[in-house]
Design a protein around this nucleic acid. Structure first.
Lengths: 194, 194
DNA sequence: GCCTACATGTAAACCGTTACATGATTAT
DNA sequence: ATAATCATGTAACGGTTTACATGTAGGC
């Protein structure tokens, strides 16, 4: 149950609407958290009840009102207390790895349908490689824009930069692993010519 | 909803009891899935209803009966169909990254209490580095035991080896990132001497 | 005319976690 | 004696996902 903390962490610098939080979790900070808009709206209501955030409604011409959420002093205290507590290692749940584990069910032979199955697996790895490359490109762009000179950062900026570094490293490593897998499919004698 | 697929994937080679599945998800294949024993028991019942697995009860002296689950032909078909479908990139939810993102709330100064807070964060990163190193050691041991000669593997073994490779790469990369973070704390002028 | 973006929400279904429950065996 | 391991399960709660729901503005 750390969605509340992830939301509060984003609110440290700027007030956010639920909508904007959903966008950021989906695009710019997806290297550390993920949440749907419904989760976010519910969580914001709870945080408001607990006085960890405050709302200022912003009227907008021809649009629904925007509710801008600010973190409160109590919210900051709550966050600091949490971040001094130990936490667990994140569990991994990777569909793609389950697929590779089970891939031996696909017989490798010369018949067309079966070759088509292997081809589908290869395509899936190529597709995931591209998805990760796309993410990596986004992170590199954020790095260029916000941290052009990583050696000259204040400690506060450095923290954020290191979070982004984790995203960059993760995607680079994932891509390199996809290449290991694709190399197998390209070179293994049993699959050759599929 | 891929717990069912992860269970079926493990059942490809050997029949398992719920208890044994829980142990494997917790220890030997935690680089691709995680589940509690309650989840597993519920999921096995569902899979049995759908005839994707079958049970053979094994009487044991002085112990509750063991229920050994086997995958059925229908189960294999179900798995193959699933693994030919495209899947999403796994969402990342990392408490440790949220903490680092919010770490700027901890003031860096000379007072004892505040230095203690920074020290707690450093300890947390050291602790996580150790946890990941421990996992890495486990994976290396599995590699030595099951894949002593990675160049001479059948294609089926190679799939499994590449899944393990992902676990190894992930932990190595995570440890290297922890080192980047710890280096900051060791060298940054604002934190020096804490 | 249709799709996307903006902006918020409800309801239901499903998944995951924690607590409770049982009962024998083996190790300390 | 006490705790850990083996082995399975129920019940309740909480978190997550998906579908449904509404309504404006702007681009193609």
């Amino acid at each position: 149950m750390a969605l509340s903390h992830a939301i509060l962490a984003l609110l440290i610098d700027n007030p956010y609407s639920g909508y904007d939080l959903a966008k950021d979790f989906d695009q710019s900070v997806n290297f550390f958290w993920k949440a749907t808009h419904q989760q976010i709206y519910r969580e914001l209501s709870k945080l408001e009840e607990q006085a960890l955030v405050e709302v200022s409604p912003i009227a907008q011409a021809g649009r629904p009102d925007k509710k801008l959420y600010h973190i409160t002093k109590a919210g900051e205290t709550f966050l600091i207390e949490w971040l001094l507590q130990p936490c667990e290692v994140m569990p991994i749940k990777e569909d793609l790895l389950v697929k590779l584990w089970a891939a031996q069910l696909i017989p490798v032979s010369k018949s067309i349908e079966q070759s088509a199955s292997v081809a589908k697996i290869i395509e899936e790895f190529q597709r995931h490689r591209e998805l990760h490359q796309h993410r990596l490109a986004t992170y590199h762009q954020i790095a260029r824009e916000f941290y052009p000179d990583p050696k000259r950062l204040s400690i506060a900026q450095k923290y954020r930069y290191l979070v982004l570094r984790r995203g960059i490293r993760y995607e680079e490593d994932y891509i390199a692993w996809c290449d290991e897998v694709l190399e197998l499919f390209a070179n293994h004698p049993d699959v050759k010519g599929v």
